[in-house]
């Protein structure tokens, strides 16, 4: 455990922190607690309002350092936050996007359009690293699929079983990480530039705690209050859900289509089975038992 801490501390010193994506089941790093997500399971769909709130958290908090490499237009597409096209156009216009070269051969800035990518906070990775203590904050568009953790045997088998399946390791990890900042336990030294996080492997993370209660104002309901609490817990969940959508924008379409495909194949295989049985009846049926067992009679 100590070597693991020292290892991460050393990694921080040479600026390679957070290079390791898969959260190892490192000793002393608890697995993120499992959350309930609307997009989990066979019939999962995203909660539009949650995605919209998650985008707001990204925009007001994460965007200062983290790139989100998706085009504005996707915020309006089906299966996503489904902002209106007018909202997305207005949103894009608030950003300055570099374009060019113009007729004079110069690059220029213009207001963003829906087809533009959300501009990165830093012009390149080196600038991002220089501004953040030597380690560039990772882009977030696929982070929900680029992070995970191992639950070990026998869970890796249980996690694939229909209706028991568990594939939301990424969002659970993001939620856990954002709520996992706490005081280091006695005797644990956090190296300079690091921060203690319960769920980060090795516990020393370069990113300071980004969220605090009440930091992001959520849209008000008819009663003049936000329908969900404005807490770190809620922000983390909304953001994790939003990042799951950016990582997997076709998730709803995929699950819907998958259900139909499997029903179709089930019906088809049922029919095929009876065709096969009928065909084989012409020669007295077939034996499915391993040979060497008692020979079967021609049962058809």
């Amino acid at each position: 455990m100590n070597t693991r801490h020292a290892l991460l501390a050393a990694a921080l010193a040479v600026g390679t922190l957070a290079g390791a994506a898969t959260v190892q089941a490192a000793e002393g790093t608890p697995n993120p607690p499992r959350q309930s997500w609307t997009f989990a399971g066979v019939f999962g769909t995203f909660d539009r309002a949650q995605l919209q709130r998650g985008f707001k958290v990204y925009r007001e908090v994460c965007q200062a350092c983290h790139q989100l490499k998706i085009p504005f237009r996707t915020l309006a597409q089906n299966g996503g936050p489904q902002f209106s096209v007018a909202q997305v156009t207005a949103l894009a216009a608030e950003y300055k996007v570099q374009d060019g070269p113009n007729d004079a051969g110069e690059m220029f800035e213009r207001p963003g359009r829906p087809a533009d990518f959300i501009p990165p906070p830093f012009p390149n990775e080196n600038a991002a690293a220089a501004a953040n203590g030597g380690k560039a904050p990772p882009p977030l568009q696929v982070i929900a699929k680029a992070r995970g953790f191992e639950r070990g045997f026998p869970w890796f088998i249980v996690d694939v079983i229909p209706f028991l399946q568990y594939q939301e390791h990424g969002p659970d990890y993001i939620h856990a990480l954002l709520t996992g900042y706490e005081e280091p336990p006695a005797g644990f030294t956090v190296p300079p530039g690091g921060h203690y996080n319960k769920y980060f492997p090795g516990h020393v993370i370069a990113m300071p705690n980004p969220l605090s209660d009440g930091q992001v104002e959520y849209p008000k309901g008819p009663d003049g209050r936000s329908p969900v609490p404005e807490t770190v817990e809620q922000y983390s969940k909304d953001l994790a859900a939003f990042l799951m959508w950016t990582a997997e924008p076709a998730l709803e379409q995929r699950k819907r289509m998958g259900f139909m495909v499997i029903i179709f194949l089930a019906v088809f295989s049922y029919l095929m089975y009876y065709v096969k049985k009928k065909v084989w009846a012409q020669v007295g049926g077939e034996a499915e038992g391993a040979p060497g067992t008692a020979p079967l009679g021609p049962t058809g």
Partner: peptide, 21 residues
Amino acid sequence: MFFAWWVFFLPNYLGHADNYI
């Protein structure tokens, strides 16, 4: 049918998270 289960419901299970970096 077995194949479809993976493709539509566990598409990244057999891959590795690091390959999205």
